[in-house]
Nucleic acid binder design. Structure first.
Lengths: 296, 296
DNA sequence: ACCTTTTTGGAAGGTATTTCCAGGGGGATG
DNA sequence: CATCCCCCTGGAAATACCTTCCAAAAAGGT
């Protein structure tokens, strides 16, 4: 039934863009370029304007999570009204980074990209879905994090945070170790896999293994249609727009961290007494360590 | 053709209300009472729900200044989305996290904290100062990153990024290794030290050593008055408000990453040809690796 | 080069919207 | 008080729009 709501529509269109077929993608691009124009068009007009058949347009609407073009059009009208009202507020320069931009522009654009990524991700993050992930982590016997490259740092970050509230887990950044651990997974284990594309073989393979062994799998990825998302029990989607000088990669990592932070806070809440005590204890330990160091 | 726009729709409906015929007015009332519901309904459903004929509904739309029901419905969707977004914005409490907050609030507050942190940091980030850091990194013979705990991940992140554009450096997260390397530092080396408090002994000590050995020191810290900041040649200040349930720690890490990203993009720009080529080469290597993996 | 799978456009079918028309009620006038 | 006129209203036909189905074309693998 009803797909993405107005707030996150543009972001989620961007998210599924890579997984679309060419002609469907061309329609999706049109939607991204000028949502208001599409909202004003009937399917017949849009078909004429884009050169694609009406059937293809209906497929696009379906791919975006709507029941048909009518629904998409309504959502688009809502979305464009919303963004229009926001446009006035921030007329900051959007756009890509050029090699010749002065540093002030670099700061502005990177900031903008990361800020947008956070907003988009938050808009897409359904509390119910987050709740299920929190439940899974809280009830897990063991939690393992998995990610390679830049995503490895996100996995490590989550592991650090969980450790601070007394839920130790291991962050795997190495296929071989991960596969070994995954093979030994048992029901009650949770694996949190981080991959921007959702297709990184070094992440997907251990996840398959862990799943077969009975573990619950949580995916944090930009691509909700990816192999990783398909394998996972719970999927949390991070947003990030690809741009020329690749602040895309920068932004998507920030998105992933936001998700990790939300999961962390959720888990900390659920286990409040224990978590609060653990935070205090760990902080004290660090403070005492610092004192000793400073005195010496 | 197009009648009242989203902004003044409700007001103008109210204005023409007295001049409408009874059955038309009953439809207009429905619109005022629950615009969102009307936006969701087809003319058939609305007719059934209100008891009025479809023709009457079309007349209502005309009376309100639209060309027909379709247009009215679109405008209604837009209008209700706008008011909804306004409600959401108003309800965005800036406060702290309480252990009892529902997950939706957790998301809102964490998002808000991180978003603010990014904005604050960007505002404090002077382009000239950033420029000096970029210069130092570009001209460095070697770049070493240093950070322990959560800041260690930031250091690792920076190292990863620099490596991708062909400027390998080592991220130290261990006092002993760091001290060893720092003792062997030479003029022309750059040390980037990350510490939220700026007082972490495990970071300050190696920095002292590196300085004595002639290295240029860059500090990324929340506290511009800290020991670390005092020791450094260049200080980049990250922002992050401390709040009760400690999303402060979350936010300050995001700030640090923003700074790293800006430095990275700045360096990449300055070494554009080399950096671009390096990014391409590293990406190709990863792609070829993925292909091999997928095929097997 | 052939076969399978996926993607696409065309046309039929169904639903929603619009237009047209006739019935009905209220008020004014003779 | 009766009659006429005008406007309101609902039903049904006509139209436009959206959706579904099927076959052709293209892509990818063997």
């Amino acid at each position: 039934m009803s797909g993405p709501t107005a707030a996150n529509l543009v972001a989620s269109v961007r998210a599924v863009l890579p997984s679309l077929t060419p002609s469907v993608r061309s329609i999706a691009r049109l939607i991204l370029d000028d949502p208001a124009m599409v909202a004003r068009s009937t399917i017949t007009e849009l078909s004429a304007a884009s050169g694609a058949s009406q059937a293809t347009i209906v497929r696009t609407a379906r791919a975006l999570g709507f029941s048909g073009y009518s629904e998409l059009r309504l959502a688009l009208a809502a979305a464009s009204a919303q963004t229009q009202s926001q446009r006035a507020a921030d007329r900051l320069v959007p756009g890509d980074l050029a090699p010749s931009d002065p540093l002030a522009d670099v700061i502005a654009k990177v900031t903008r990209a990361e800020s947008d990524a956070i907003a988009d991700t938050a808009a897409q993050l359904a509390p119910e879905r987050l709740g299920k992930v929190v439940d899974a982590v809280v009830e897990a016997k063991r939690v393992s994090m998995l990610g390679v490259g830049a995503s490895g740092l996100v996995a490590a970050d989550m592991a650090q945070k969980l450790m601070r509230i007394g839920l130790p887990g291991h962050p795997f950044t190495d296929v071989h170790l991960a596969l070994t651990a995954a093979a030994l997974a048992a029901p009650g284990d949770v694996w949190v896999a981080v991959s921007c594309t959702g297709e990184t073989a070094d992440v997907v393979e251990p996840v398959k293994t862990a799943r077969q062994a009975g573990a619950v799998v949580v995916a944090i990825t930009n691509n909700p249609r990816s192999s990783l998302a398909g394998l996972a029990d719970h999927v949390l989607v991070s947003a990030g727009r690809e741009t020329e000088f690749r602040p895309g990669a920068l932004a998507s990592r920030i998105s992933q961290l936001l998700i990790v932070d939300c999961v962390f806070v959720g888990v900390a809440q659920r286990t409040f007494t224990a978590a609060d005590a653990a935070l205090r204890v760990t902080k004290d330990a660090l403070d005492r360590y610092s004192d000793r160091r400073l005195r010496s």
